[in-house]
Design a protein around this nucleic acid. Structure first.
Length: 289
DNA sequence: CGGGCACCCTGGTGGC
DNA sequence: TGCCACCAGGGTGCCC
């Protein structure tokens, strides 16, 4: 469910609440949420440890512990971390200490309907060698983005979902970014011009910033850890808008399936075949009307 | 490398 | 009201 803005929203809610606390006890209501490590060993590695800080990398939340263990949570499609329980709680973290001083009995609830979420811990660094650059990394320049697009022949939409190519985008924000940049989801990555690559990166950043300011998108039941819903879903322009008029040109939004994911786009604003030499490197640029 | 698919799960919905 | 097929924002692994 959650993509970068939602995970970051949760991180910001958690950070002041859990920093400096100690994980007293972990109550495992459903062991299927603990991955890569036996639940008993997980408990042993993490219980009694102080939480130094909460970080985010791509869609992963990382709790850095005093004993150098990284306690990692990926929320999958329906995972959430809450201050108050709901009916899908799988794991309860009992915390003690921290600020304000003397406040005891803090709890964090890991809730997850579909059990696609993952919780584990390890001490191997770097933590995520397989992940691509963060969209907001200052070193991630538009020229790098263009160069990396040039080396890939896959369709742009699935490539944006590939966490090894760029980290943190999911179906909603990849879809919205391509619409904002007027790029058809099926364009091959290496068909994008340098100008289009720059526009796409700017769109990605713009959409993510906007979503962050709105506290994320609340589709179905996403809420921040504090229980507040995000509001960015009100700003979606194409995601889940099949049949509705495009805000820019009033053409009906179309929906297709790519890489097993629904993809909405405006057929006029996001042309695949321009009928010109504009997309000279695209196999669709010639021959087809 | 790229594309397609099955699979891990459960719950909400929309059609009949 | 009830049933059921279908859909869902993620990720991995396998096959060709």
């Amino acid at each position: 469910m959650p993509e970068l803005p939602e995970v970051e929203t949760i991180r910001q809610h958690l950070q002041p609440y859990v920093c400096g606390t100690t994980i007293k006890n972990i109550e495992i209501l459903d062991p299927r949420s603990i991955k890569k490590i036996a639940p008993a060993r997980f408990k042993k590695n993490v219980e009694g440890q102080k939480i130094l800080r909460v970080e985010r990398r791509a869609k992963f939340l990382v709790f850095q512990l005093k004993n150098k263990t990284a306690f990692v949570i990926h929320l999958g499609m329906t995972g959430n971390l809450l201050f108050k329980p709901d009916k899908y709680v799988k794991i309860i973290f009992h915390l003690s200490g921290g600020l304000p001083a003397g406040r005891q009995g803090k709890k964090i609830y890991f809730s997850d309907i579909r059990l696609f979420g993952k919780i584990y811990c390890h001490k191997k660094y770097p933590l995520f060698p397989e992940l691509g650059p963060e969209p907001f990394d200052e070193d991630f320049a538009s020229e790098d983005f263009y160069a990396r697009l040039q080396s890939r022949k896959s369709k742009i939409k699935p490539l944006l979902l590939d966490q090894g190519f760029i980290a943190g985008l999911g179906n909603i924000y990849a879809t919205e970014s391509l619409y904002d940049a007027d790029i058809h989801p099926e364009r091959s990555a290496d068909s994008l011009s340098e100008k289009e690559a720059g526009k796409l990166l700017r769109s990605i950043r713009k959409i993510l910033v906007h979503a962050l300011r709105s506290g994320g998108s609340s589709i179905s039941d996403f809420v921040g850890a504090n229980g507040q819903k995000g509001s960015f879903q009100e700003h979606h322009k194409v995601y889940n808008k099949e049949g509705q008029p495009c805000e820019k040109c009033r053409t009906r939004i179309k929906k297709m399936v790519m890489a097993q994911r629904g993809t909405c786009y405006c057929p006029k604003c996001q042309p695949l075949d321009s009928g010109s030499t504009r997309y000279a490197r695209s196999p669709f640029a010639r021959g087809k009307k």
